[in-house]
Amino acid sequence: MDIVLETDQLGKRYGRAWALRDCSLRLPAGRVAALVGPNGAGKSTLLHLAVGLLRPDAGAVRVFGQAPYDNIAVLSDIGFVAQDTPLYRDFTAGELFTMGAKLNQRFDLAMAHHRLTQIGIPRDKAVGKLSGGQRAQVALALAMAKRPRLLLLDEPVASIDPLARREFLQALIGVVAETGTTVLLSSHLLADLERTCDYLIVLHTSQVRLTGGVDALIAGHRQLVGPRHGDRPPSGVAHVVRATHTDRQSTLLVRTDGPIHDPAWTAHDVTLEDIILAYLGDGDTQSGRTHAAWGAPA
């Protein structure tokens, strides 16, 4: 399996505070991956390290097997849409495409113009006068016209309306289907990610909490509802991700390593959003009386 992006104990520090620490992950080629985490988890820092805008203070980051910092050979294969899609607002889309063609040897000018024609965005209007959704589409067209092997997107649709967001994601899926580009998409919008992505990376407190293919992760997690007794989950549970207790009942979101046969417990399917929120939570919550926690690694 080809690995496009790999980090090994990667860390970045601002002053005395670590924005990213002990971050280890591997992103397989051909995936559309969601990068999820709360504000301050290190998502933007990870993307900036991957695209060579920052140097690591610990560990290593490799893109296509090489360090990206000051590496023209690697950077030419990376497309990047930064948070808030920063563009030269006085330039028209056509002028931005002309600049892109002069700065990138493989820039596909015809593809960039075709993308905007398909979605009805004018090429002769200053991008500062376009809507937020239109600017996001221009930024995506610029990034994809590089013909990148890896596309990094940092919250590209966070500030645009639902219709524009849907159009952007549809365009992204269409372009990826045509080119086979690997995508790493950072976003807080979990419902959008569930419709778009087939791979998941969860960052929390500057570290990786979970990675894997979406289908496999959903198949490997269950919500269990059963009686409140003892401190051990039933057989078939690898570990408890999150537990909620009342005096009589426990509700567990678990990662499984086999079937759940205990008749005292009822198993329910979970969504990707359920899994993400569980891994971003504090693990154990209780209502009513205080009980012993379900001690299990995350």
Rank of each mutant, 00 (worst) to 15 (best):
A58W: 03
T271N: 04
D284S: 10
V270F: 09
K43A: 05
I201T: 07
D154G: 07
A50Q: 08
R209G: 08
A191V: 13
A267V: 06
V74Y: 08
T205G: 08
V81D: 06
S235W: 12
D161Q: 03
D70K: 12
A41L: 05
A219K: 15
L189K: 08
L190I: 13
D2R: 14
V176G: 03
R149N: 14
T196L: 10
V183G: 03
R123W: 06
L252V: 06
A141V: 01
I78W: 04
T290P: 08
R16V: 11
Y199S: 10
A177S: 12
A298L: 14
I276Q: 10
T251F: 08
R147F: 02
L151W: 07
S187C: 08
G128Q: 02
L185I: 03
R21W: 13
R255F: 12
R89I: 09
D70C: 10
V63W: 10
D8K: 07
A171D: 11
L25M: 01
A58K: 03
A34T: 00
I121Q: 02
L224W: 01
W265R: 00
T85A: 15
D77Q: 15
A112H: 03
Q83V: 11
A58D: 00
G281P: 08
V241F: 10
P233R: 07
S206D: 00
A93E: 06
I276R: 01
S186I: 09
A73P: 00
H114I: 04
P162F: 14
G11H: 02
P38S: 12
R289N: 14
T117L: 10
R31T: 15
N71A: 09
R195T: 11
I275N: 05
T285W: 07
V157Y: 10
A126F: 04
G258T: 03
R135H: 04
P263R: 01
L172I: 06
L163N: 14
G30Y: 02
Q249Y: 13
Q249M: 12
H188E: 15
Q66M: 10
L150H: 03
T285M: 07
A219D: 15
G236W: 04
G213N: 15
D124E: 12
V270N: 01
A264W: 14
G94P: 15
E155I: 13
L200P: 04
N71F: 04
G212S: 02
A126E: 02
A143G: 05
F91S: 06
Q249L: 10
L185Q: 01
K43W: 11
N104C: 13
A264M: 09
A82F: 08
Q170F: 08
D90T: 07
G65N: 08
S250R: 13
A293T: 04
K102W: 12
D2A: 13
N39I: 01
T117Y: 07
R248K: 14
V74F: 08
G213Y: 15
R21L: 14
Q286A: 10
L153T: 04
L253D: 12
D269M: 07
V36D: 03
A112T: 03
V175K: 05
L10I: 05
G120A: 10
R222V: 09
I260V: 13
H221D: 11
T266G: 03
H229L: 12
L203Q: 15
G213P: 14
N39F: 05
L272G: 05
V4K: 03
D154L: 09
L87E: 11
R165N: 12
A191C: 09
G128I: 07
I160K: 05
G11S: 00
L150V: 07
E194N: 09
S44C: 09
I201N: 11
N71L: 00
